[in-house]
Design a protein around this nucleic acid. Structure first.
Lengths: 248, 248
DNA sequence: GTGTTCTGAAGTGTACACACTTTGCGGCGA
DNA sequence: TCGCCGCAAAGTGTGTACACTTCAGAACAC
């Protein structure tokens, strides 16, 4: 607002300043940088346990080390990055037990999710959920694993959101980020895709019927299968990280 | 180690340097600062939604703004601090719905906790758990609410740890930090103390018997009561924050 | 009196400087 | 050949500088 030619504080001779560049501040660096590094960590674009060179990363992202370090500190708490004092920041390890542990916790939270949704969600939102998933199903042929994973997560997050507990949503999102790498591989399996579509619909229908017990049961089956398949997906994941394209 | 007079890089005239002080680096600042601010946020030593002045806080803690900002960024992800771009860091709000939401999530995770513990914990660790709690019970007269809250949390975290899922432990610890302020008040209630002691023993005994269903039931009762009482504890909490000593 | 514009102070956001730590490597002695 | 010492380069940890934003209040017009 204010089209007025708002006077800026006079900067000493913008042309040919003696100091190379007065470093004009880039807006909102931390959030951009945070999102970028988060994506890289989620997808294991850093190798597991690889040290992350701050100077290099800052240069790549076109900012100084300060916002990079602030973003990295956030990611440490999220569990996507680890920090060794006086050594530096490292990519999280690829830890099968940890991933299984995250699946366990997720299963518990997803259970709470459907319980709350069955009790509290409005009919409208449940109907929207079914529409949403039917829409995804209809256009599944055109979707790659990346996009389908995203829709899958959205389905679950919608249910969590319907329960009216934002903290539950936050935690599920955080967990999803850490297991996405494995789940995306899992979802590439054509058979797995089909069962996912059916299971999601079953969950939605149980919610529509306000059948809490059935909703929990459907969700447990759905998530339970994921845990069982996770191991082979992790094998494949390791191969892709360390063998690249050769893995296929 | 190394009593050798390790040569340091020559600093330009340490005596009466033209520049006030070359700022010798304080060791491990971020972690100290992080712990300090975390404690303050947990205990609402900042008022809810109060803006946190970085310069002031840095001066209080005897460091520069850099480690303070890194610590604050971590705490944002933990949910103990909020960040408004170009405005600054703020203390988390005192949000009753959010606290209830956290109790809900906690209940779900504690349920998982006893389920896993009932399946996986060794007999020894279960025995240690009972010894631990009997010890706490024996010396309860000498404990203030602060310490008892700490022991209470420890009891629950021990159970979570017995399940062998470190991520579950992490999340519970994170939630505990955010509801500790309310739980400490709750635990001041003498009657509540008594029921807590009994309920904890009941949980431990169910674990010892490997009775998963009973363990879950005991835990649910225990946590459920906490949720019910939380509202009055929150009222009291608000009074203490804003009325200080007058609240008693 | 009331609204509006301007201005300066306070404070955040980021770049940068620099001390300290870690680590790899070459030379030296046994 | 092997180990050890001692550099020196690379890189982290933190202090500091400075541009930019926000906000409150003065000055001013109406």
């Amino acid at each position: 607002m204010a089209g007025t030619p708002r006077k800026k504080t006079i900067k000493a001779a913008p042309k040919a300043a003696p100091r190379a560049a007065p470093a004009p501040r880039a807006a909102d660096s931390v959030n951009r940088v945070y999102a970028a590094i988060q994506r890289m960590a989620v997808n294991f674009e850093f190798r597991p346990e690889q040290r992350i060179n701050e100077v290099e990363l800052a240069a790549t992202l076109g900012v100084s080390r300060t916002p990079v370090r602030e973003a990295l500190n956030r990611l440490v708490i999220e569990g996507l990055i680890t920090l060794v004092p006086n050594k530096g920041f490292y990519c999280r390890p690829f830890d099968a037990e940890q991933i299984i542990g995250l699946f366990e916790v997720r299963a518990s939270l997803e259970r709470l999710s459907v319980e709350l949704a069955a009790e509290r969600a409005s009919d409208v939102r449940i109907a929207e959920l079914m529409d949403f998933w039917n829409g995804v199903r209809a256009s599944r042929a055109a979707m790659d694993a990346e996009e389908l994973t995203s829709r899958d997560e959205e389905f679950h997050i919608r249910i969590a959101a319907m329960g009216g507990n934002p903290e539950l949503v936050r935690m599920l999102e955080s967990i999803n980020a850490r297991i996405r790498f494995v789940r995306r591989i899992e979802i590439e399996n054509p058979q797995r895709r089909t069962t996912t579509f059916d299971e999601h619909l079953a969950i939605a229908e149980a919610l529509k019927a306000r059948d809490r017990g059935r909703a929990v049961a459907c969700m447990s089956d759905h998530i339970g299968i994921s845990v069982a398949d996770a191991v082979s997906a992790m094998k494949e994941g390791l191969a892709r990280i360390y063998m690249g394209r050769m893995a296929s």
